[in-house]
Amino acid sequence: MKRYFRELSVAAALVLLLLLLALFAPHFYELQPLLSRLTAQIPTLVLTLGIALVMLTRQIDISVGSQFGLCAVLAGLVSAGGHGLPVSLAAALGAGAFMGALNGCLVAWMRLPSIVVTLATMVTWAEVLRLFQQGKFVNLAPGVQWFGLSQLGGQLTLLGVGGALVALAAYLLKNTSGGRHVYAVGSDAEAARLSGINPSAVTFGVFVLMGTLAGLAAVLNLVQSPQVDPKCGTGLELKAIAAAVVGGVAVNGGRGSLWGALAGLLLLATINPALTFLHVEAYWEKAIQGLVILLAVIADGIRSRRNLN
């Protein structure tokens, strides 16, 4: 119970917000819009999983939004060029893995600070995309949307994929040696190294995985509409990082769970629609988001101080 305090308190805040909505804005629970809202968060969820892993190894990746945009446009162009969804998926995953590997190389083998490396790659990929695509939408081939299924079928598939990914990642992280290595490297890289783990390899792997997940997220976003907006990745890195942080993934590594990150994402993703449903003016949105992040870390700080005493 105490161990999952953070996850549970975020979940409690989410439940409270959902109850508030049930009382004052029951329209929130209409099935079809609710499904659309949930599926729209699946790409961010996938990114959040990746970011949580990166943060668990005590690194950060702020280039994920740019990676996402580049993968989305690439997959879109491949699809528009007449290739099927599997080819697009492969292209996006490949591009994502490549960009992740570049970050990983620089961080793990060149020992450069991840925040600076990914700041530089964030700018680089965003500018490359702007120069290359010039803001033009990519029109996808018909039959890409919803994987060629019906809308309901596509949305359920997306939810299934998202849920399965979280469950799989959480299981692997907890029950495999690779997963425990992630925690070990994040807690104390030197101790991990002395106990026979190769921290560089683990870090590199996590960044490659992050890039690959960005590619996957881009495809899971792409199938939700018939066009790709080249600006689709802008700001996603902050959303994913905020979700992980609110969900209790510690920025100084080694602590946190993917379920917490999921709860954090759901909480943050519910706040924005809740404002619309409770008729709060849009200009309060950023202030409230900031306040939630601060409250989450302050709660953490007070709790850990009490534990210290």
Binding site: V245, A287, Q289, G290, I298
Partner: peptide, 17 residues
Amino acid sequence: RLPPLIVTLGTYSLFRG
């Protein structure tokens, strides 16, 4: 004693908000 990255990420949203 909160991590500066996260505190200022929060105030980044809060101040602009």
